[in-house]
Computed example of a mutant assay.
Amino acid sequence: METDDELLTRSVRDTEAFEPLVARHSTALHGYLARRAPRAADDLLAEVWLQAYTARGTYDSGRGAARTWLFGVARNVLAAHWRRHSDDRRTPRAAEESDDPWQAVDRRLDAAAVAPLIRRTLAGLPHVERELLLLVAWEQLTPTEAAAVVGIPPGTARSRLHRARTRLRSALGTPQTPPLAGDLA
């Protein structure tokens, strides 16, 4: 079985090699889009695959895995969607907020009891920290893969991810570090 990187590279010469990528990654990409733009997720997924197919010749395996590249394409498609629809809003908002509709994400949180607190905490995070946290927590990307998606160095991503997790833990009243065995007595 060919790896994603091999398939994506081969798809430049053999278009049928692109099909297994769609089968392997559609569910994860759709989930990423649905958590951020639930009503438009299906259309956005189609746009992701169209753009990925069109740009497949620009993929460079030296810059990261094919999965990471696909999430980067999805992130760009989502950002373009938010920019297009930010003009539809009636109340003026800051540019970062208008590109990031967290009310839709909030409606999808399962933990209803802490949803308001999580919402405030996520909204208070800088955009990149929030995106890193969600890519790692929801999309199960590694911090290095998430760094590639948002276009920052891995070390920077790890420190920003740590900061975001610390703020979320603090807001939820979760201990920062597990207690030592002697502290349990």
Rank of each mutant, 00 (worst) to 15 (best):
P116F: 08
D87A: 15
P179I: 12
H162Q: 13
L132N: 02
L117S: 10
L135T: 00
A80G: 11
R119W: 04
V128Q: 01
G62S: 14
V77D: 04
S159Y: 12
G72F: 01
G182S: 13
A65R: 12
T174R: 10
P143A: 04
A115L: 05
A146I: 00
R63L: 14
E131D: 09
L133V: 00
R107Y: 09
R83F: 05
W138I: 06
L122A: 08
H85F: 09
D183G: 09
R84Y: 05
L172T: 04
E97Y: 00
A112W: 01
A113G: 05
H162I: 04
L70E: 11
V149L: 05
S170K: 11
P178Y: 10
R108T: 12
V150Y: 00
A123S: 15
P101K: 02
L50V: 13
R75H: 12
E131H: 03
R93C: 03
V114I: 08
P126Y: 03
A146Y: 01
P126L: 03
W82Q: 15
T177Q: 15
P175F: 03
G62Y: 11
T68Y: 08
A115D: 04
T156A: 14
D43T: 02
E139V: 04
L44D: 04
P92S: 05
T91D: 00
S61H: 13
V77M: 08
R167I: 09
I118V: 15
A65M: 06
A79H: 10
L141W: 03
L50K: 07
R130A: 00
T177G: 07
R89H: 06
A95M: 06
A157V: 09
D60G: 10
R130F: 02
L45I: 03
A52Y: 07
I152A: 01
V136P: 00
V77Q: 07
L78C: 04
Q176V: 09
T68K: 01
L117A: 08
R165S: 12
A104G: 06
R163P: 11
V105Q: 11
L180D: 15
A148K: 09
G72V: 03
A115I: 04
H85W: 12
V73H: 05
R167L: 14
A112M: 06
A123T: 14
R89G: 04
P92L: 03
W138N: 14
T142A: 10
L122F: 04
A104R: 09
A137Q: 13
G62T: 13
S61N: 07
G72M: 04
R56G: 12
P101A: 08
V105K: 05
A113P: 00
R167M: 10
P178K: 08
L141G: 01
L78T: 06
S86Y: 12
G124K: 02
D183L: 12
P101Y: 06
W49K: 07
V48E: 05
T68G: 13
H85P: 01
L117V: 10
E139Y: 01
S170E: 14
T58L: 07
L172C: 04
W69A: 10
L50S: 13
L172W: 02
L132R: 00
R165P: 08
